[in-house]
Amino acid sequence: MILFSNVTKVYENGTVGLDNVSFYIDKGEFVFIVGPSGAGKSTLIKLLMHEETPTSGDVIINDINVSRLKRSQIPYLRRRMGVVFQDFRLLPNKTVYENVAFAMQIVQASKRDIRRSVPNALSLVGLSHKAKMLPTQLSGGEQQRVALARAIVNNPAYLIADEPTGNLNPKTAAEIVEILDDINKRGTTVIMATHAKEIVDSMKKRVIAIEDGVIARDETRGVYGYEN
């Protein structure tokens, strides 16, 4: 579970990212984080990833108060989370297979585990046949699918997706969200920050809307609610 308790984030230049935000996300949920640009979505994602720490309040993930996490413990928190970015963040000099295996090498998984898990992850995102290709030889949607495979290959409890469809056409974006839905159905909690109105409206999942750093809406089967 994830708990934000009265979380405020004020950046060094005085910008308020989040202002006294509280919410709870249960294990296995699929949650969209929506809101206008600059509303605080990215701050929320950064706090989850421990890229930033709250100015006040607590961020609790699996009974651990990550706001008070020591620097040396951050990697172990991140290993429980898969992360997908808008810009894919793949290593251009590694093949599709190597990009996915990379996430396992980092946690020092055995070669045997890597050989077993990487093909499974690639199969889940439908890219088994492109394992030997370089990211530059793939389309945007395919690159994001590689990023998804990398995010799930270590069986994380949480998948954080920051605008994963932002650089994709509607059809490809729908495919990516379908994969995310599949991953969620296997028990992984998915938190997705997005501007994709059609996707949010069609999925009928929980929606947390943030405006000016505060929660404007938190609906169990919500809609996007903004005009793009």
Binding site: M49, S72, V83, L90, V107
Partner: peptide, 16 residues
């Protein structure tokens, strides 16, 4: 730096 950034987000320790 991009590679290092990715490594950090995937959970690599500083020494790794």
């Amino acid at each position: 730096r991009k590679e290092i950034n990715i490594m950090k987000f995937v959970g690599a320790t500083d020494w790794f």
